[in-house]
């Protein structure tokens, strides 16, 4: 059910007369005094829409060699006449579509002529297609539109790119300054890292990245520093947990272990220890289940982990799940699992 742009499949530049017809709908217009639109403007619109197949510079009403400034000026002047907002929510009859068409064509003319590259393309195709004399809306314009529009659209993309590049040149100096700042943040980050001030190091390197987001080295280093910082924090928490265990403050121990697992999310044993405490000390079966499941995911071949997960399910009254886990535990040769399974 997918759909592919035929432009890609068949190559850009295919003639598409349909597109042209859409771009330039035909109107049969008469002056209608009942409309909410000055008859003088109606006349003007009839004339303008009739001339939309003329070369783009004629649509804008500028000389073929007009400069960018003149083109923009003309575009602004004509927009003030033909922009739909000028006739907002008025009773316009058929003229509503006319105004829409006029403005869109005007915009197209401006976009294409305001860049030298697309403009050259336009002028080439306008002179070669022979319909550039502007003899009314009827004959010849289909050929003009179909051979021209697709080729120009490639050029529009190129123009955008060029415009981007020229805009970016003005940024060079600023870029340089920011890179410099990034570098100094990075250096203080590395110093902090050497001084084993891990969190500070991570913070500095993050700042370096903010100033110079494209620097791969910083990103890589940030990963390293952050891992290290997490590693240290986890170790610290585990130590605190052990100390709490010694003092029989099991609740405290649990919260340390739980947080430590956050920093060592790949450590199945940590999850397992936390799960047991969550279940037996804290009595939070939800947390216990989540932690034990994580432990099983991380070490699927550990029978004891599955057994404890089974026991937690059992405590929560989820017999089917408990059975599944305990059977897995038995298969993995966990000794206590058999007795548990019998007790189900």
């Amino acid at each position: 059910m997918d759909c592919v742009p035929s432009g890609e499949a068949q190559g850009e530049g295919q003639a598409r007369p349909r597109q042209t017809r859409r771009d330039l709908p035909q109107f049969e217009l008469e002056i209608d005094e009942s409309l909410d639109l000055d008859p003088k403007i109606q006349e003007e619109l009839i004339e303008f829409v009739g001339g939309l197949s003329r070369p783009y510079h004629e649509i804008l009403g500028v000389a073929p060699d007009a400069d960018t400034r003149a083109i923009k000026k003309a575009y602004f002047q004509k927009s003030k006449r033909f922009h739909p907002d000028r006739y907002f929510r008025k009773n316009l009859g058929e003229y509503e579509a006319v105004i829409d068409t006029c403005f869109k064509r005007l915009l197209e003319a401006y976009e294409l002529l305001s860049d030298p590259a697309t403009r050259a393309e336009v002028q080439k195709s306008e002179t070669s297609s022979g319909s550039a004399t502007g003899d009314g809306p009827s004959s010849g314009d289909a050929a003009t539109g179909s051979s021209k529009t697709p080729r120009v659209s490639g050029a529009v993309a190129a123009r955008r790119l060029r415009r981007r590049m020229s805009g970016l040149q003005g940024h060079k100096k600023i870029r340089q300054e920011r890179k410099q700042k990034a570098k100094s943040f990075f250096e203080s980050g590395i110093a902090a890292f050497r001084g084993e001030r891990w969190l500070e190091a991570a913070g500095s390197v993050r700042l370096a990245i903010a100033f110079d987001p494209d620097n791969e080295v910083y990103r890589e280093e940030f990963g390293k520093v952050q891992r290290k910082a997490h590693e240290m924090r986890a170790a610290q928490l585990q130590k605190q947990a052990d100390a709490a265990m010694d003092l029989r403050d099991l609740g405290e121990a649990f919260s340390h272990l739980e947080e430590a697992f956050h920093y060592r999310p790949f450590d199945g044993e940590l999850a397992f220890r936390a799960a047991q405490l969550a279940w037996q000390v804290v009595g939070d079966l939800h947390k216990a289940k989540d932690l034990a499941s994580s432990a099983c995911e991380l070490e699927p071949e550990n029978g004891a982990y599955h057994r404890v997960l089974g026991q937690i399910y059992k405590a929560a009254g989820l017999a089917a799940n408990a059975k599944r886990e305990l059977e897995t535990a038995v298969r993995l040769k966990d000794k206590e699992a058999k007795a548990e399974l019998r007790g189900l």
């Binding site: 059910m1 997918d2 592919v4 742009p5 035929s6 597109q19 739909p84 869109k104």
Partner: peptide, 18 residues
Amino acid sequence: PVCKSHVFTTTRDNQSAV
């Protein structure tokens, strides 16, 4: 306001919907 159109096609033989 702007309106643009483009022609697309199917990716399988006898495809009846896109």
